[in-house]
Amino acid sequence: MWYLGCNGFVLKAEDTTVFIDPYLGTGDPPRTIRMVPVPFDPADVEQADAVLATHEHTDHVHGPSQAPILESTDATFYAPDDGLAVARDEENWTDEWDVSDDQLAEVAAGDTFEVGAFTVHVEPAHDPDATHPVSYVVEYDGRTFFHGGDTKPSDEFARVGEEYDVDLGVLAFGTVGNIPDKETREPKRTRWYNDENQAVEAASDLQFDRFLPSHWDMWKGLTADPTALHDHVRSFEYPRRLEIAEIGDRVDL
């Protein structure tokens, strides 16, 4: 797999390619300002079987980032209901790009589906800023990957941790910052992602063998130092190891 910055990942196994939350926009300056490079032009993608979105926010469902991938590869876009509403109603993917409605598939917690070599389980997520967020558990050849989107700790995670043997898990990590309000543009104290203690609580409940923090690199004012998590995970059984990746890095399972 490759880390795309923000919360984006590409997973590859055999002849199957799956994108999760790829975001190739620059934000909404001056409110949100991207702090890492845009890794590629989505129109250049030649192989993809699916694009998975965890929830409806712009850096997770974004027509200019994702619709060109569907257009050039005939991949299927999987998202919870409000994520599909963005694609269908707000951004009109089927009108603005050569994307058919049958490429847009709704998912909800409890679903399981196959994408080529991967088995994808849809599990709950707890993101108070989203409407119906989900997390994804992706299995391949005895290996298991968890992507929580922007989730914070959840009462469901102890069950998920018992149900799956998660080899590598991703959780969003960041600081609290003053970010301009969407309507007034006045600075507002903002917490979008897990702090150190929340991240370790969730990773511990989910019983990650390896924990890879994401999103810490993305927005000006909300960036963080993921190496600070070393001290926080030290006294817990899980996660067993902290894995740090920067944009473009490849991680193997």
Rank of each mutant, 00 (worst) to 15 (best):
W2A: 12
Y3E: 01
V10Y: 06
K12E: 11
A13M: 05
D15T: 13
T17V: 15
T17R: 12
I20A: 11
L24C: 10
G25W: 11
T26Q: 14
T26G: 06
D28R: 14
P29S: 13
P29E: 13
P30I: 02
T32S: 13
R34T: 05
M35F: 09
V36G: 10
P39V: 10
P39N: 10
P42L: 00
A43D: 10
V45L: 00
E46M: 09
E46H: 06
A48K: 08
D49N: 15
D49A: 04
D49M: 05
V51T: 02
L52I: 03
A53L: 02
H55T: 03
H57L: 04
T58Q: 02
H62V: 01
H62E: 04
H62W: 11
G63L: 02
S65C: 02
P68R: 10
I69E: 04
S72F: 04
T73F: 12
A75V: 12
T76H: 09
T76A: 06
F77S: 07
D81C: 00
A85V: 04
V86F: 06
A87V: 07
D89S: 12
E90Y: 08
N92G: 12
D95T: 14
E96G: 04
E96H: 05
W97E: 06
L104R: 08
E106D: 10
V107Y: 13
A109V: 06
G110Y: 07
G116N: 14
A117R: 11
A117E: 15
F118A: 15
F118W: 10
F118R: 11
T119H: 06
V120W: 09
V122K: 13
A125K: 04
T131G: 00
H132I: 03
P133A: 08
E139W: 09
Y140A: 10
D141H: 07
R143Y: 04
F146I: 05
H147P: 11
H147T: 08
H147L: 04
G148T: 06
K152A: 05
P153T: 07
P153L: 02
D155K: 11
E156L: 01
A158M: 00
A158I: 05
A158Q: 13
V160Y: 11
G161N: 06
G161L: 03
Y164P: 03
Y164E: 00
Y164M: 01
Y164F: 15
D167W: 11
G169Q: 02
G169C: 09
A172G: 13
A172L: 05
F173H: 09
T175N: 12
G177Y: 05
G177P: 07
I179Q: 12
P180V: 05
D181N: 14
E183S: 09
T184P: 11
R185I: 02
K188T: 14
R189Q: 03
R191L: 00
W192S: 00
N194G: 14
N194M: 14
D195I: 01
N197G: 05
Q198P: 01
F208V: 04
D209W: 06
D209K: 15
R210W: 08
F211Y: 15
L212M: 15
P213F: 01
W216H: 13
W219H: 08
W219T: 08
K220Q: 14
G221Q: 01
T223L: 01
H230R: 14
H230W: 11
H232Q: 15
V233T: 15
E237D: 15
Y238I: 05
Y238H: 15
P239M: 09
P239W: 06
R240N: 12
I244Y: 11
A245M: 06
R250V: 03
V251P: 05
D252R: 13
L253W: 10
